[in-house]
Computed example of a mutant assay.
Amino acid sequence: MAQYRIATIEGDGIGPEVTRAAMAVLTEACGAGALAFEMLEGGAGHYTKSGEVLPDDTFAGCRDADAILHGAAGLPGVVYPDGTEVGNDLHLRLRFRLDLYANVRPIKLLPGVLSPLRAFEGGGIDYVIVRENTEGLYASRGAGVVLRDEIASDSLVVTRKGTERVARFAFDLAAGRNGAPRDGQRRVTVCDKANILRSYAFFRRICDEVHAGYPDIAIDYAYADAITVHMLKRPDSYDVIVAENMFGDIISDLGAATVGGMGISPSGEIGDGHALFQGAHGSAPDIAGQNAASPIATILSGVMMLRWLGRRKVDAALVSAADRIEAAVGKVLAEGRAVPRDLGGAATCTEVTDAVRRALV
């Protein structure tokens, strides 16, 4: 039996609770011994004790592992001298040092979950946002300029290499999907502000060039302001959306809100050789230690991890386990067996976890 090393960072706040929940479900689905979780230190809490948010041995463990599973990071008031949050720096450092250039956020309405979009309460939302993860406005992280306490500036960076590879990732992803729910068309939508800024016009042009290699996949375009309207009015028209870093960050959270919120929204940060998976939510320190957090986002991030690892290692058992976990989550929610509090239920983190484990077939 193949065994895969999973670098695991519980992090801060609810991070330990949701991480352990995901580990329990993943182990149940894959069988004992298939996944070796290597527990590593890191995050804002570790920073307050050691002065390090990402220790060298933690980075080495992540670099050498088959995949990375992360809970959450960040604590109120734990900031650097420039005011930026320490917790975010954990996965940002991993992102840049391991070149995790594609941030993947599935936006899917799960069975039994009510969307705030009344027209889609019966389903029909199923698309993926692919956010360029190493460039854009966030490339200025740590390098912005403040002059005389009067002027502050950050630079937006778009390169040909960075855009080509994230666009290719998006088209490859679309090629393996079933298309948009509305018309079944495999489609990549480019989200930008090409009408205003040259950097975004360049981003769009490079996406067009990459599209030439994918004649069976449609391409369309949406300005970042307009897409926020379309994501609410006609979300079923989307299949895969590709965007610059900051725009992708913003619209990903909007998309999550339309399908139930951050507590059930998974994410993956993926490169050519490494990948990190974590729930899209924060560390929620106000409910930490109360067994009140929803583990679903982290469990579904584990599903993404198994699928990525299964494809990479050509291991059909991992892909099968991922499918079974996703089906179990859907069954638990649809039947109301254990509905977490953020979805209007009263189930604890433990109760949701146990229900998903029992629903595995």
Rank of each mutant, 00 (worst) to 15 (best):
A2D: 11
T8G: 05
G13L: 02
G15P: 12
M23N: 05
A34D: 12
E38I: 12
L40H: 01
G42P: 07
G42A: 07
Y47M: 11
S50A: 14
T58C: 12
A60E: 06
I68S: 00
A72C: 09
P76E: 06
D82L: 07
D89G: 04
L90C: 06
L92N: 13
R93N: 14
L94N: 02
F96L: 15
L98C: 00
Y101M: 00
A102M: 02
R105I: 07
K108P: 08
E121P: 00
G124H: 03
D126I: 07
E132Q: 09
N133I: 01
G142P: 11
D149L: 14
S155L: 15
L156H: 15
K161E: 15
V166E: 09
F169M: 12
R177I: 06
R177D: 07
V188I: 10
D192C: 13
D192G: 12
K193M: 13
K193H: 09
L197R: 10
Y200N: 15
F203G: 11
R205Q: 15
D208A: 15
I219F: 03
I227W: 12
V229E: 14
H230D: 15
M231E: 07
V259N: 01
G261S: 07
S265G: 08
Q290F: 14
G302K: 07
L309I: 03
K313E: 13
R324D: 15
R324L: 09
A327I: 02
A334T: 05
G336K: 05
R337D: 10
V339Y: 02
D342Y: 02
